[in-house]
Each structure stands twice: as structure tokens, then as C-alpha cells.
Design a protein around this nucleic acid. Structure first.
Length: 278
DNA sequence: AATTTATTCAACCGCGTTGGA
DNA sequence: TTCCAACGCGGTTGAATAAAT
């Protein structure tokens, strides 16, 4: 039996889009909006599969796309987000307005990888290339960098943001001192990091509580207004709106079980840690 | 000028996830 | 609870272009 094809095989066009096809797609979406990609080609008079239409729109035709070269700030942000998220290009793209996951993925593979190699940094691990002691410096309980793991398989990572010019540094800030990294690399690894996490709880919870279970990411500049509404009745601990600053470490592992620990800095980015004893 | 090699990036493919029946 | 259509994502491909020889 096998999976059904994404679209009828009967004479659909492939390859590069023509200007006429682009215009048809643009006109259709302007009139009818996005969505229902499967039926869109027929409705728009296109001999393309829905997938192809969706991709063309998202990666090329969307009016809010930013074309042109990536800035240094965008480079840094991509590197930092990749360090945290790994190859989650759609999550990374969500933090770069006007950029698509495909564009970022291509840019990563063609530019940033090389840039990191030139800096002596492994683009996959974000560690120095000559750092052969990874397995001895990272405890086995610590997940690989770029991955977020949890024993609660239904926990949802809703959002992650990192302030530009920041980097996740989750090891001892002195640990590189004997690894032969250059001062540039060291400086690079010690930039500050701030990140916001909004985490939802397992979907097995009652539906009518759903809205109360999602932690919403605050709007920019609106951090103090965020509020958690999680019902404190199950054994889950959440940390959110946490960040690493130079010479500071995450407080996740201490005092689990107390109510709310707040760590507000003057830049308003390293804020709280809220363990929830449920 | 012709050919080869390297690079870029739009598009495709297959798989995992989701939500409705 | 199960099934399956549809969607979305990440990896890969290949055509177009640029650079090198």
C-alpha cells in the first residue's frame, strides 16, 4: 500500500517557475489567502502540485521577504540559534524576519560553515575543531549541544529567541583555557546569551485547560507582563525566560521546588526561573 | 575564447506530525 | 482508537552562474 503521492502525477510542471506561473500564484493568494495548498493549483489554474506552490510562495513570492545579503548581525544570530537549536531551520527562520528556512539553510551550508571553520569552530558542535575532549568535559547526562531534550515527550518548545551577538555558553567559562583556542575564538564563545523559552505542557491534559497550559512568549519590550497560568497540580518543572550572561550560569539546577526565583538584570533580559511543583 | 571546476540557491523528495473523520 | 489526507520540515539534487585554468 504505501504512501499516497502528494499530488496527482498527471502532467504537473516541474523545475523553474515562469513569470506567468508566479503571477497566477500571487494573484490567487492575494484574492484567497494562503492555505489549502492541495486544491490551490487547480483553483489558480496552475499545473503544479500543491507542495510546489507552497514552496514557491514561502521561499520566493511572499511580499515580506527580505532579499539580499545577510548582515553580520544576522550571521551572528544564525550561528547562535544553530548552536542552540541545531538544524531546526524553520525555528531559526522564525527569528529572522524576512528570511526563509530554505534561505538560511543554504546560507549556512555555503557561507557560515566555512566561516566557522576559518574561526576554528566545528559548525556542528560549535566547539573548537581541535577540542578532542568533548566527551570528557561534557557529562553524559547533558544532551548534545543544539538539542533540547526532555523526558516528557509531549512538552512543546513554543519559542526560542536569542538576542543578537549572543551565544549559548553552557560550560565552565574557564574550560577553554588549556584547549589552544585563539583569543578570537575565546571572545566569540564568551559573548552573552539571552533566550526566552515558552514551553507548553503535554497535550494529554484536558482540552478545556489548553489555553491555560501554554506559556506565551512576551512581545518585545513587554517581558514584565508575561504571566504563567499553569495549574500547579502535576509534576513538571518549567524554566523560562532564562539566559546566560558573562560569568553567570543557569540557575536551573538549584532550589528546584521553591516557588519563583527571580534574577533580573539591568538589561532586562535575564529574568526569571520559575520551577513549578506540580 | 574554450573548457573545466566550484559555488550558489531554487526546487524536489521523502518522512514525520497533525487533525479530522 | 485507528486511519489517512494534508501539511510542514530538513536533506538532497541539479541547473545556472562565476571563477579558474
Amino acid at each position: 500500500m504505501g504512501r499516497s503521492p502528494c499530488c496527482e502525477k498527471q502532467h504537473t510542471n516541474k523545475g523553474a517557475w515562469t513569470k506567468e506561473e508566479d503571477q497566477r500564484l500571487i494573484n490567487y493568494i492575494k484574492t484567497n489567502g494562503e492555505g489549502c495548498w492541495r486544491s490551490l493549483p487547480k483553483a489558480a489554474g496552475l499545473l503544479r502540485c500543491g507542495k510546489s506552490c507552497r514552496l514557491r510562495w514561502i521561499n520566493y513570492l511572499r511580499p515580506d521577504l527580505k532579499r539580499g545579503n545577510f548582515t553580520e548581525q544576522e550571521d551572528d544570530l544564525i550561528i547562535n540559534l544553530h548552536n542552540l537549536l541545531g538544524n531546526k531551520w524553520s525555528l531559526i527562520a522564525a527569528r529572522l524576519p524576512g528570511r526563509t528556512d530554505n534561505e538560511i539553510k543554504n546560507y549556512w551550508n555555503t557561507h557560515i560553515k566555512r566561516k566557522l571553520y576559518n574561526r576554528g569552530v566545528d559548525p556542528q558542535t560549535h566547539r573548537p575543531l581541535n577540542d578532542s575532549a568533548v566527551s570528557t568535559t561534557v557529562p553524559t547526562a547533558v544532551p548534545p549541544r543544539g538539542q533540547i531534550t526532555t523526558s516528557h515527550k509531549n512538552i512543546i518548545i513554543k519559542d526560542v529567541s536569542i538576542v543578537s551577538n549572543s551565544k549559548l555558553v553552557c560550560e565552565d567559562s574557564n574550560s577553554n583555557s588549556s584547549s589552544g583556542v585563539s583569543s578570537d575564538q575565546e571572545a566569540y564563545q564568551h559573548q552573552q546569551l539571552n533566550l526566552d523559552l515558552s514551553i507548553g505542557l503535554p497535550s494529554s491534559r484536558p482540552q478545556n485547560n489548553k489555553d491555560n497550559l501554554m506559556l506565551q512568549q512576551p512581545q518585545d519590550g513587554d517581558y514584565e507582563q508575561q504571566e504563567t497560568k499553569v495549574t500547579p497540580s502535576h509534576g513538571v518543572c518549567l524554566c523560562y525566560s532564562l539566559g546566560f550572561l558573562r560569568n553567570q550560569v543557569c540557575c536551573c539546577n538549584k532550589d528546584i521546588g521553591n516557588s519563583v526565583t527571580t534574577a533580573v538584570t539591568d538589561n532586562n533580559m535575564y529574568r526569571f526561573y520559575r520551577p513549578m511543583n506540580i
